[in-house]
Design a protein around this nucleic acid. Sequence first.
RNA 1: GGGCCGUUAGCUCAAUUGGUAGAGCUGCGGACUUUUAAUCCGUAGGUUCUGGGUUCGAGCCCCAGGCGGCCCA
Length: 498
Amino acid sequence: MSEQIPAVDDLPEQLRVRREKRERMLERGVEPYPVELPRTHTLREVRESHVDLPPDTKTGDLVGVTGRVMFLRNTGKLCFATLREGDGTELQAMLSLNEVGEQSLSDWKATVDLGDHVFVHGEVITSRRGELSVMADSWQMAAKSVRPLPVAHKDLSEETRIRQRYVDLILRPAAMETVRTRAGVVRSLRESFHQRGFLEVETPMLQTLHGGATARPFVTASNALGIDLYLRIAPELYLKRCVVGGIEKVFEINRNFRNEGIDSSHSPEFAMLEFYQAYGTYDSMAVLTRELVQEAAESVFGTQVVTLADGTEYDLSGEWTTLSMYDSLSEALGTEITPQTPVELLRKHADSRELETDPKLGHGKLVEALWEHLIGDHLYAPTFVRDFPVETSPLTREHRSRPGMAEKWDLYVRGFELGTGYSELVDPVVERQRLVEQSRLAAAGDVEAMPVDEDFLRSLEYGMPPSGGVGMGIDRLLMALTGLGIRETILFPLVRPE
RNA sequence: GGGCCGUUAGCUCAAUUGGUAGAGCUGCGGACUUUUAAUCCGUAGGUUCUGGGUUCGAGCCCCAGGCGGCCCA
């Protein structure tokens, strides 16, 4: 009947055998991939409606259930299979010679492999050992698997888990749990915003200028317009246009793209939350940020003391610590550091602490490097680090009382940067000066510096109310709440092609 | 970008000093009507990541490359 394609002969035995089983089903007129099955209950529904039955019970309840075969225990005249459905619920199916007859039982043994989706119709019973089961009166293939599942008793290699996440999800309940946790966190964020009267918007991912952050963009091109386009590195400049337009409480949860290194805490595409509030300041935004994180933890785990992947507990409750960057750096160095401290002196401090620095670094980047080395890397409890050098914060308002500092904070959680908040710079004249300075850096070869966005400046010229703004990485929020690496929190992280 | 480690059966991993490439699970054949990673008997399965080199002989040594991981910048 059906000709096998020649390549089948070259397949490893286990793949070949399963393909042949599929072929044999077709030859017998049995559909290996039926379009519809008479399912009456999910496995979960069967479990929930039959709790605490004693062993060897017959309920008289007839059900049709489906599931992926996770374990098979075939004896001569009685077969057991553990079925699992997507939410992780398992239910045992039993096939007895007495109930299904010789042909059906031998078909089962000859065609069903681990990993197949099957449909089983029969009575809900418990086995002699008390296992809740469906005693089949008939069964049917729901979808034949022609590729063997990796063994369930050994961990998959990390690479295979990431490259073939679908297999990871099938085999490892924790992988599925991470997906659920992430969905719960994002949902909680949206609910927190909606409760506070924020509007969710979607701003361009394809931009004619990249701005809103210092990062190297991905470049693409529009055939229709005949121009280069950038995948956005941040939504910031568009969200500020929203505030100018009168959307006074606005947020966006969407993807950013940065053409930079890939490691355990950086992914080239990552989900970002940004939110802006007219008449907010970096103080009020810090409170809101803390509440968002705490509400997410509460919503997903029912507690603000979360349990991380390594089993340790992490306390997100209550008020969080606040540090001043310059003050804490001064304390760590034992001498006062201010925005006026000369670059040469900062470099001396770096040298004396065995911190290698690029000789091209200016005051702002040196202060940040020193601070990260001496303090940031050791922060564990949730901490707002405030008042950054103004020169490295081109979109931030200068501090109202401490010249040379910006009203900006970084939120550190478990030693990494979770988010950043600002009292936004809304003076169009100062903003123009800052962007011109940035574009000068860009022209001088700084691939991370921003170009001048004239339309953005024009919007500011119409008048943007005093505002607070925050950016927070969703992937990093997941890392903070779960203790997982970034490649576990992203379902399909970018990997080099096989 | 640099250094180190890894890459072997469908999966997870062994392989002594350079001397016939193995195990468990999985698969296949058989037994078994209450199993729970079922058990028992039998059996199959390999481009040792790729290409070159040294050697009588290479999974192992050398060179180049791919992919992955860790550390450093």
